[in-house]
Design a protein around this nucleic acid. Sequence first.
DNA 1: TATTGACTTAGAGCGAACTCTAGGTGTTAT
DNA 2: ATAACACCTAGAGTTCGCTCTAAGTCAATA
Lengths: 127, 127
Amino acid sequence: MTISEVSKKYNLTQDTIRYYEKIGLLPKVPRSKNGIRDFDEEACNWIEFIKCMRNAGMEIEILIKYVTLFRQGKDTVKERRQLLEEQKSKLLEKQKSINETLDRLNYKIKLYDEIEAGTRKDFTEKI
Amino acid sequence: MTISEVSKKYNLTQDTIRYYEKIGLLPKVPRSKNGIRDFDEEACNWIEFIKCMRNAGMEIEILIKYVTLFRQGKDTVKERRQLLEEQKSKLLEKQKSINETLDRLNYKIKLYDEIEAGTRKDFTEKI
DNA sequence: TATTGACTTAGAGCGAACTCTAGGTGTTAT
DNA sequence: ATAACACCTAGAGTTCGCTCTAAGTCAATA
């Protein structure tokens, strides 16, 4: 698969994919003899994995660490597990923040609906 | 309330608070006669609100827009409602991404647990 | 044969959100 | 009175994660 195909498949720019490889986020992307990237299934799987993690806001440094451990083989399973557990905690925190904010947005949207409907005349919005 | 008290109360640096005011994110922070900020309840409420929204990842530009509309009074209720609704959608998307990633992390953590426990001998982790 | 088009690289540039620096003012404690 | 301390400002610097630029290689088509 060429970079333009991968780019379309995962909706990432070619620049982003090259950047990810450059910083060590993609282990061994195969190349055809004239130096052109030829993504195999494993490389694609990594891209998909990284995209998923990045979408959730995981830091690139952490992902590089994970990829590095992964490449070192079975001996790093314990450390990888630990890393993922930490990231899980962070995501749970983030989830909590988002839920709090959603509650607040819902409250305010409801308030604005009441104001617009005229069912609330005492317009004392308290931020 | 002085800036250092507010800073402690909301766990934001003084620099961040001053920055928020400078860019128009805090409507009218009162000042004592020698020019020192003296946060009243309303200013504190704004800080708390902004902190909540920022924690969920809402962009500063959007928050400035909201604050600006708020200051313009009742006539902007409809527009404010619309803005909040858009941000709500974004947060729901983000929530979805986080949930997907959490599922994936849980799967991998479980896999690593099995590997470590020795209950899974076929070590064919597929990223 | 010339040009088009997809790929390559190194490295510069960018936007967001702070964070820090330098220099200044005003109040309080010794 | 002088030092310490908390505050102030404008503006420069930093970090993250891309994104763009310039210059080059190579294969296919007019």
